[in-house]
Each structure stands twice: as C-alpha cells, then as structure tokens.
Design a protein around this nucleic acid. Sequence first.
DNA 1: CATATATGTCAGTCTTATTGACATATCTCA
DNA 2: TGAGATATGTCAATAAGACTGACATATATG
Lengths: 176, 176
Amino acid sequence: MESTMVRGKVGAQVDNEPEARAGGALPYELIELFFFAYRDFVSDPDRILAELGFGRAHHRVLHFVDRNPGLTIAELLDILKITKQSLNRVLKELVGTAFIEVRTGLADRRQRHLHATASGHALAARLAGVQGERIRQALHGVPAAAHPAIEAYLTAMIDPQERKQVLSRIRKGPVG
Amino acid sequence: MESTMVRGKVGAQVDNEPEARAGGALPYELIELFFFAYRDFVSDPDRILAELGFGRAHHRVLHFVDRNPGLTIAELLDILKITKQSLNRVLKELVGTAFIEVRTGLADRRQRHLHATASGHALAARLAGVQGERIRQALHGVPAAAHPAIEAYLTAMIDPQERKQVLSRIRKGPVG
DNA sequence: CATATATGTCAGTCTTATTGACATATCTCA
DNA sequence: TGAGATATGTCAATAAGACTGACATATATG
C-alpha cells in the first residue's frame, strides 16, 4: 500500500497488460492523475468565464495576450496552434467587449499588435489567480525541495522540439 | 441550477480572488507549463486515434472501461462527468467497432457492464503506451527521490471533494 | 511593378458537448 | 401484485471550438 509508486509492479493476480509490455508496467496512476488534475485545473476559470459568456478559447487568447503584450496575430496562432479562422471569432469577441485592444504595427502596418486593456488585464489576473491558488495549495503539500522537480517534470512533458521556444516565451517576463 | 440527472456537483465554493496578488506573484510558469504539458500529453494518442477515426472522447471511454472492467454506464458517466447523450454516440461507435463489449448485468438486468474486447484492450494499451513513454522519459530527467512528490502534486491538484474517490478508482485493480 | 506577407472573412463541416423530452426494461417495496 | 424508482436508450435541437478551402485586402519588399 505504498501510495506513491506506479502500481501493478508485482500484481500477480491480474494479467491486465499483456501486450502493454514495452519495458515495464505502464504508469497508469500518473496518466490518470494528469487527466483529472488538468480537468480540475481548468474548471475554476471555466466557471468565471461562463459568467461572462466566454469559453476556454477566450481564456487562452486573453492569457497569452496579457502575458505577451504586443503579440501579433501570427505569433498568437503559433502559440495556440489553431487556425486564424478559429482565432478570429474569439478574438473579435474579446475586442468587441474591450478586453483586448488591437493596434496597427508601426514598423509594419500589416501587423496587428494585441494588448490587454485594463479590464482585460484584470480578468486575466483573476483567472490566473484561481489557477495559481490551486497550484499554491497543491505545492503546499509537497516538500519545497521537490518544487523544482515538479517544474522540471512538466517541462519534460513538452515536446522536445518545442520545449526551448515554450520556455523562452514563458520566462520572458510579464508586461514588457 | 445547473446539474442534470447525470452530472455530479460542480459548484465549488467561490474563491473570491479579486485582482492579481494574494501573497506573492502568480505562478505563471507552472500555469503555462501545465497547459503546454497537457496539450502534448494528449497529442500522442490523438494521432493514433485519428487513424482510426476516433477522437479523444473515444480514448477516455476506452481507457476507463479497459481499466475498470465491468464498469456500468452510470459509473462511467460519473467518472467522465458528461451526459449520457454525449456518451452514447461514442460508446455506440466503440461497441460497433468491437473495441468494447456490453454485457447485461446478472444481478441487475437493467445495468450494462462494459468490457474492453481483446482488440479494445490492445488499443487501450497502445494509447497508454505512448502516454506512458512520455511520462517515463519525463521522469527520467527528475531525481527518483522526487517522483513521489510529482504524484502528490498532481493528486493535490484534484478537487478535494473528488480526490478520495478518484484515488480509490485509480488504485483499485480492475473490477472484474 | 510584381510578388510575398499579414491579416480578414465567407462558407461548410466535424467532434464533443449541452438541454429537454420521452421510451423501455427492470427492480423494489408496500 | 402493482406503483414507483432506477438504469439505460433515443430523438431533436443547439453551442463551442476546432477544421479545410477559397478568396479579399493592405502593405511590404525586391
């Protein structure tokens, strides 16, 4: 009943993974924990967004615009990995409700630079707040010494080819 | 107010979180890492599923049925937190393609007990395999001593009210 | 000027989810 | 036994979020 290890290592009675053997038991616990953890992680913002008639797509757009002021359409599409048609509706709604502001590029007037407005930033911060609160309480039950390992683990879960780009974007610091 | 006959409670207490802070900067890195990590985590199965004309919904159903043989419709709905109408199409397709088998309950003939077929189990194992591989390589870059902390962290990210139920479901062997 | 680039938009489709309303079989209990 | 309650199935309409394809416009660049 050691609560932490991946289960089934010596599970004699159940032969539940015949063709699964690619070199050991599958980490079912971590697979399912990740699923449930992520679901609850996004549920907090979902409730707030629903009050405003927004969905997760709005959250993602607002979040990355807030974190990367001046982001262009193309950059945002690259981050979100969606098509411009998908982005369009959501972005139009966020602009229409004045949570995001569009400024024509100065150097290149074809570009659109996106910025969160004051209310956009407030909403983004509120959404990040509830998610941050969940993270904070989760970290609370874990030795501080292990916190870097958690970050390292999540980082290593990202596709290697994208990892560098994602990290540089994440760590680029807010507002500026 | 919002629940149907099928859904469980969703209303967590509102954690009023006005603007930014509460006791420090928001953990933006972990917020974004979780987002990107989860996206890539599901991308591997997505590719396999696409070949078969299936989507994520099929994956989830097949996964939990495979892991919990004999699962009833009601139990599955409780795990997935979707409506029976949503489940229906997906489940019908999985049954129609013989990845899942339905058996009428013996004790209670109203119930339907779901089982993965041989091919269903093979597919489930293949999907869990690619996800497990990603997890394994991610764990590789983290000191083994910190592995329990990662599991503890993910567990703590789950809603407290659900945590116990989720854990018992995850750790219990196949129902048989 | 010709072409490439950045963005916008129209139209249609798909998957996954929703709510609402019923239908049917079966179990339970008074 | 008969009246509900329960477990599941199904029809219909709708929505969010994504997609492809095609085309339009403005601007930059060589």
